[in-house]
Design a protein around this nucleic acid. Structure first.
Lengths: 228, 228
DNA sequence: GTAAAAATTTAGGCTCGACTAAATTATCCA
DNA sequence: TGGATAATTTAGTCGAGCCTAAATTTTTAC
């Protein structure tokens, strides 16, 4: 039996790899809220498990083996399905779903997973735009173009937002930045400095700490409200 | 923070007290699937906790303190609400809900509890007829009259069934014994021996191991199919 | 290229909740 | 009432997963 702790480590390794491309002891320690020494111990154990769950060489970081990746994706599938279910079926706010899913993901049965997946129509994205892995272990590429990299004058559609900070998510909701919201980056943006974004009727100056955590797709140039 | 294990112990103490009127080390050990010595250790700890969760004197059994009872009822409320939610909202069979609720009961938030309670219309009974404790710690008396004690010729309505054996629950479902099903105890039943019960159109001989685990309310004598 | 700083690992220890084996206490029955 | 049996408790151990402090290795900066 795979413990909750092990599931959390494997999930964290997957997520850190997604975000940083490399998984170090200290990144894992911060992500999991444990001491670096604890990470070393657990990672050594995962590398000794049969089947082996991670590849590990001291001081060189960690990668998932196929077996470890499989477990990670199952947990992430649970997490994201549950998030969407909470939002859709129970009316949760999008800043509340993560904490609840964090606990539920480790305990639901396959039957529960299947039932909510069917009920939601086998969805592809969670409430923050993260792709939901399929049962056979396929994951779509997450949207990776940050709003901070958009060019003045561009019209963009929000495809994903970072989900780890509830206060940030509440802030976005208040701003009107929801999934699929259409934003216009103001013309003549300052050379360096906050991007000015038109959301609905209003313009806002958004710092880079904000625009770095919003991912978008560029909308084809067209007769849009902000460009008329 | 109260651990899952502690929650399980307190819930078990409550349930065994309901069923047997006294809570011994060995009953707890069987109920929880652990060794008797483990129970002694944990019970001593619960009695030393502040606030104290159980009253305990060696060799004399255990009772819940008000604080322990409060925790037990919260867990049981979770359990039974979840059972009903799984049956009602997700279409679970009634023999499947217990195992899933057993895991979920320890991890759901108050928000989750409130949302499903509201969605279900603040229900009073779970899928097996067990009363759902209210948030303020009130519990209705469970139905206690066993079908085995019904008299020949009586018409009864099923109010509760034992929920601990999935095979038994599947058997009942196949028989047509659901919550609120109306049964007729055949006249001229053998002096001692299996009760003959008319369910719908068919009669069945039910052993005492079955009729002991079905609880009923006597229906007032009336123009009923079996008594005409 | 080397010294200081940062990251990582090792070593040793803690708590929790289980276990087994042995000792003790309670109960039951002749 | 005593002696066998059953129930319970004590004593000692173990694995999981965390911790801190100290040692080691890697990286950085001059």
């Amino acid at each position: 039996m795979i413990s909750h702790a092990v599931e959390d480590y494997l999930k964290a390794i997957y997520e850190i790899d997604e975000d940083f491309g490399e998984v170090t002891t200290s990144l894992l320690a911060v992500h999991l809220g444990v001491a670096p020494a604890s990470v070393t111990g657990m990672v050594q154990k995962l590398a000794r498990a049969k089947p082996r769950l991670v590849n590990y060489e001291r001081h060189r970081g960690v990668t998932l083996t196929p077996a470890g990746r499989k477990v990670a994706l199952e947990v992430i599938r649970h997490h994201r399905l549950i998030e969407l279910y909470l939002a859709q079926a129970l009316g949760y706010e999008w800043d509340r779903v993560d904490a609840e899913a964090e606990k539920l993901e480790h305990v639901i049965s396959e039957e529960f997973e299947d039932k909510i997946a069917a009920l939601l129509g086998h969805p592809v994205l969670d409430p923050h735009g993260d792709p939901i892995p399929t049962k056979d272990g396929t994951v779509a590429e997450p949207s990776r173009q940050a709003l901070s990299s958009a060019q003045p004058g561009q019209t963009v559609r929000v495809t994903r937002v970072r989900d780890d900070d509830p206060a940030f998510l509440r802030y976005l909701a208040e701003l009107g930045v929801t999934l699929n919201a259409v934003l216009v980056v103001a013309d003549r943006a300052p050379f360096e400095g906050p991007l000015h974004i038109v959301i609905g009727e209003r313009a806002h100056a958004l710092g880079q700490s904000v625009t770095d955590r919003i991912f978008v797709e560029i909308e084809p140039a067209a007769a849009q409200g902000g460009a008329a």
